[in-house]
Computed example of a mutant assay.
Amino acid sequence: MTIPTEPRVHVVHENPEWFPPFEAALRAEGVPFEEVLLTDGSLDLDAEPAPGVYWSRLSASAHTRGHGQTKEFTRALFAWLEGWGRRVVGGTHVVELEVSKVAQHALLRRNGFDVPRTVAVFGRGDLAARSRELPVPFITKHNQGGKGLGVRRFDSHEDFDAHVASPEFEEPVDGITLLQEFLRSAEPFVTRAEFVGGRFVYAVRVDTSAGSFELCPADACEVPGVVPFALRTEITGDHPLVRRYEELLRTAGVEIAGIEFLETADGRTVTYDINTNTNYNPAVEAVAPVSGPGAIARYLGGLLSGDA
């Protein structure tokens, strides 16, 4: 790891494909930065870390890109940084939230949000029996998710039993499969609300009419015509749900996030995902009143200069 001597923003990540919009924004704001590509390397635990602000871009889906150990590398790095008192945006407690939908579900429920009925199953042994606790249809997810990992709909318990016994069953990287109620949306879309510095930036409407579970908004993730993204202009910073999300992030110590929710056909507003490694869709960015990467660059720059 190159250790600069001047204070700067250190961007900790494992996926260079996602970095260009943030690099451009940091340069545009004149914020000095250094990439920390956390796929290998080493640490001198007795050496003082480089000065500056560290920003975590750890993704729960890192293992799908051949970086299965990045989660542990990040935990070790942040233990070292926090031990030396360095400022980490998305630090150790946020990493645990990013890589566990169980932790997200617990946080949301504890703060009074409507969440999907969910059963966490360790290994395969209890899957068939516990699935009977949910009516059909129901869906499965991986606890350490992202990119729609392990998300499938089942219309009968017998179909699910056959899937679990088949070679097509995807073993979750942490061994935890989530069984979750199937939510019928009032209209075929979900919403992702973006926050920087704990404050609302904008909300994105994600069209789900094609049935895809790949909701990553980054340019590198897009499949043309499958999951179009659009700005949801009627949701503003004054929306009651947005205010509740801001309070949630404040109390949880989460500074940068995208929170996903669904408005159901039977009148519920269900929050089901907190993404602390957020990406931004270029089509939405082109029409948004505020840039997501730009807001992050300004926020990190403010922390670096002591103005935030």
Rank of each mutant, 00 (worst) to 15 (best):
L215K: 15
D207M: 10
L215H: 08
F189Y: 09
Y272A: 05
S209P: 07
E263I: 12
N279P: 11
P289K: 01
E246Q: 14
P240C: 01
G211W: 00
A230F: 00
R243Y: 06
E247A: 08
Y272S: 04
G198T: 09
Y272P: 01
N277E: 13
G237A: 05
F189W: 06
P289L: 07
D238T: 06
R298D: 03
P289H: 01
F229S: 06
A218I: 14
P217C: 09
A295G: 08
G253N: 13
L215D: 04
P224T: 00
V190R: 05
P293N: 03
R199D: 05
T233D: 13
A230N: 03
V284H: 07
E246T: 11
F261V: 14
R268Y: 12
L304S: 04
G211A: 00
C221M: 02
Y280S: 09
V196D: 03
T191A: 11
E255R: 11
T236Q: 01
C216K: 12
V242C: 10
S209T: 05
F195D: 03
G211S: 02
E222A: 15
V204C: 07
Y202F: 14
H239P: 09
G301R: 02
A286Q: 05
G253S: 14
L300S: 02
V242R: 05
N279R: 09
G197F: 03
E247I: 12
F195A: 06
A230W: 00
S305T: 14
L249Y: 08
V242H: 08
E214R: 14
E260Q: 15
N281M: 01
E247F: 12
R205E: 13
T264S: 13
S291T: 00
G225F: 03
A283R: 07
F229W: 04
R192K: 07
E285F: 02
Y299S: 07
P289G: 02
F213P: 08
G197D: 03
D207Q: 08
T191I: 11
F200M: 12
A252M: 08
A193C: 12
R243S: 06
R243Q: 07
L303I: 08
E222H: 10
G253D: 14
F195H: 03
T271G: 11
N277T: 12
D266Y: 11
A265I: 14
F189D: 08
E234Y: 07
T251C: 15
D207N: 12
V284T: 08
V284R: 03
N275G: 00
L300F: 06
S291H: 02
G211R: 04
T264D: 09
I259H: 10
G306F: 07
T264K: 15
R232Q: 13
G253A: 11
P289N: 04
I235S: 09
S291E: 02
L249T: 13
A230M: 04
R199K: 15
E246W: 10
T208A: 04
G197M: 03
T271C: 11
A297T: 08
T208K: 05
P224V: 04
A297H: 07
P282V: 00
R243E: 05
P224R: 00
V204E: 07
T269G: 15
Y202G: 08
Y272D: 04
Y202T: 06
P282C: 04
S305A: 13
E285A: 01
L231E: 01
L300K: 04
E246K: 10
L262Y: 11
P228E: 00
L262D: 13
R244G: 05
A230R: 02
E234N: 06
N279F: 11
